[in-house]
């Protein structure tokens, strides 16, 4: 019917898959079922981390040639994390477009490939929450605090979570 059908059909498939078998701590689906290219997802803060108890909504935006190119992910509540930009954009290697990094920082193997899926992205983001990587920082303040002042870092995270939950 249209050439984006590969993308939208794969997204529909992933959506159905997620509906039947949702991993713990994540939920995701299109905002408007007529447009499969914008999803809202919710990630729970993993237990045993400062993010525990937090609920983090994010918007996933898919390109027209998904799954050949990765979606972008942006948290809509403030999330203080070394690998999340201040505007909420998530910076993890599997969300970077395929090909070699122009800065030679990460290998092509870590970057996007059609083998990834929404579920895998969300699980990666969850593991990113439990294991921040201050080496490739997106939020420099968070990186610094995470390295030098862990208690302070935790306090900021907790305050943010309480605020976003309206407590």
């Amino acid at each position: 019917m249209q050439k984006s059908s590969t993308a939208s059909r794969r997204l529909l498939k992933e959506y159905k898959q997620l509906l039947t078998d949702t991993p713990d701590g994540i939920s995701a689906g299109p905002i408007d079922e007529n447009n499969m290219f914008e999803w809202e997802c919710i990630i729970q803060g993993p237990d045993g981390t400062p993010y525990e108890g937090g609920v983090f909504p994010a918007i996933l935006k898919f390109p027209s040639d998904y799954p050949l190119n990765p979606p972008t992910m942006k948290f809509t509540t403030p999330l203080f994390h070394p690998n999340v930009y201040q505007d909420g954009t998530v910076c993890i290697s599997i969300l970077h477009p395929p090909g070699d990094d122009p800065h030679m920082y990460e290998t092509a193997a870590e970057r996007w490939s059609p083998i990834q899926s929404v579920e895998k992205i969300l699980l990666s983001v969850m593991s990113m929450l439990s294991e921040p990587n201050p080496e490739s920082g997106a939020n420099i303040d968070a990186c610094k605090m995470f390295r030098d002042d862990l208690p302070g870092f935790k306090a900021v995270v907790r305050t943010n979570i309480r605020q976003s939950l309206g407590l």
């Binding site: 590969t6 040639d65 050949l68 190119n69 395929p98 090909g99 092509a108 490939s113 059609p114 083998i115």
Partner: peptide, 12 residues
């Protein structure tokens, strides 16, 4: 073919 337009490597 569409993948090869972007990258010439096996996606898996």
């Amino acid at each position: 073919k569409s993948w090869l337009e972007r990258q010439q490597r096996c996606p898996t």
